[in-house]
Amino acid sequence: MADTAAAACVDCKPDTEQGSSSQVPHPPAPASSNLLDPTTFIPPQPSITPSVTIEFCDRCRWLHRATWVSTELFLTFPAPALRSITIMPLNAEDTAGRFRVWLFLDDKPPVLVWDRKVEGSFPELKVLKQRIRDHIQPGKSLGHSDK
């Protein structure tokens, strides 16, 4: 039990099913940085483009959400529209609660398509697909996702 509590994400509520009812304290943010400023985020490096990288907090157990989002994106944007989708589990204090979706295109800076903390929620697939489509296939109809 103690090992599970120690591994709990500091950004998430503790798992009450395991007998823990107290909140994990949040470390204070450095006074000189804004943790919700997307211009300070450093994207991971892709291997091929166009590609998407989904970064997620592994301690929050968001693997299923990340794989579901990647599957939906591949179904909507099959190759060559998207050539690669990487899901990247993170397990560190500075990545606690993270769920970010990055888009990488040839000869362009990476595009932060979604950040859970900045947006205030997980991505709604309709909106996420529209944002990605606007960069890789601007004229593409997304059918019911465009309505």
Rank of each mutant, 00 (worst) to 15 (best):
P80S: 13
W62S: 00
A66M: 08
S121T: 14
N91V: 03
P50N: 07
P89R: 07
V113Q: 00
Q18P: 00
G139F: 12
A92V: 03
R59L: 13
Q18Y: 07
H64S: 15
T16H: 11
L128F: 03
L82P: 01
Q23S: 15
M88W: 05
A7L: 12
K129H: 10
P50T: 06
R61M: 08
D107F: 07
S47E: 10
D15R: 09
F77A: 02
F99L: 15
L103N: 12
R65H: 09
T86F: 06
I85Y: 07
T53A: 12
T40V: 06
R116D: 04
V69Q: 01
V101Q: 02
L125P: 00
V127Y: 06
I132P: 01
A7P: 04
P27A: 14
L112T: 12
C57L: 06
D134L: 03
D146Q: 08
S32H: 15
D11A: 15
P89I: 10
L128G: 01
S21Q: 14
C12E: 14
A66D: 07
K126P: 02
P123S: 11
G120C: 04
S32C: 11
S51D: 13
A96D: 01
P25R: 05
K13W: 12
R131L: 13
G97Q: 08
F77T: 01
L90G: 00
A96M: 00
R61F: 07
P46E: 07
I48L: 12
D37P: 08
L35S: 15
R133N: 10
D146T: 06
S141T: 13
K129W: 03
A96R: 00
P14V: 02
D107R: 11
F74G: 02
V111L: 04
I132Y: 04
W62Q: 03
V127G: 02
N91F: 13
N34V: 08
P110F: 08
A29N: 06
T40S: 13
D37R: 09
E93N: 12
S121Y: 02
I132S: 02
A31W: 05
A81Y: 05
A66L: 08
P138Y: 07
V10T: 14
F122R: 00
T40N: 08
P44W: 06
F104P: 00
R133P: 02
F77L: 05
L103M: 13
S32V: 10
F99I: 14
L73C: 12
A81K: 10
A31M: 07
P46R: 07
